[in-house]
Amino acid sequence: MFRPMRDPGAPAAAPLRFTFDGAPMTARAGDTVAAALLANGVSVNRHTPVSGAPRGAYCMMGVCFECLVVIDGVGNRQGCLVPLEEGMRIETQRGPRQAEALSQEIGA
Rank of each mutant, 00 (worst) to 15 (best):
C80W: 10
G52T: 13
A10H: 08
S43M: 12
G95E: 04
V63S: 02
N45K: 10
P8T: 09
A35N: 09
A14L: 10
A53Q: 10
P15G: 00
R97H: 03
G22S: 11
V69W: 09
G107S: 03
R3W: 07
P11Q: 06
P96R: 13
A53V: 00
I90Q: 07
G22Q: 08
V44R: 09
A29Q: 08
A53H: 08
M88P: 10
F65V: 03
A35E: 13
L84C: 03
G41L: 13
G73T: 11
F65Y: 10
R97Q: 11
T48W: 05
N40R: 00
V50A: 14
L68Y: 11
S103D: 06
F20T: 00
G30V: 00
R77D: 10
R3T: 00
A57R: 02
G73K: 14
G79D: 02
M25S: 03
A14K: 09
A39S: 04
G87C: 11
I106G: 05
G52L: 10
V33L: 01
E100H: 05
E66T: 09
G52R: 12
E66S: 15
Q98N: 14
V33G: 05
V50D: 15
A39Q: 03
Q93F: 07
A27Q: 04
V63W: 01
R94D: 10
C59P: 09
A99S: 10
V50H: 15
P4G: 03
P49Q: 04
R28I: 00
D7R: 08
N76F: 09
A99N: 09
V33E: 11
V63F: 08
A34R: 07
R55Q: 05
A29E: 11
C64Y: 13
V82I: 14
C67K: 13
C67P: 14
A27E: 05
G56M: 07
R46W: 06
G95M: 10
D72S: 08
T19I: 07
H47R: 15
I90D: 06
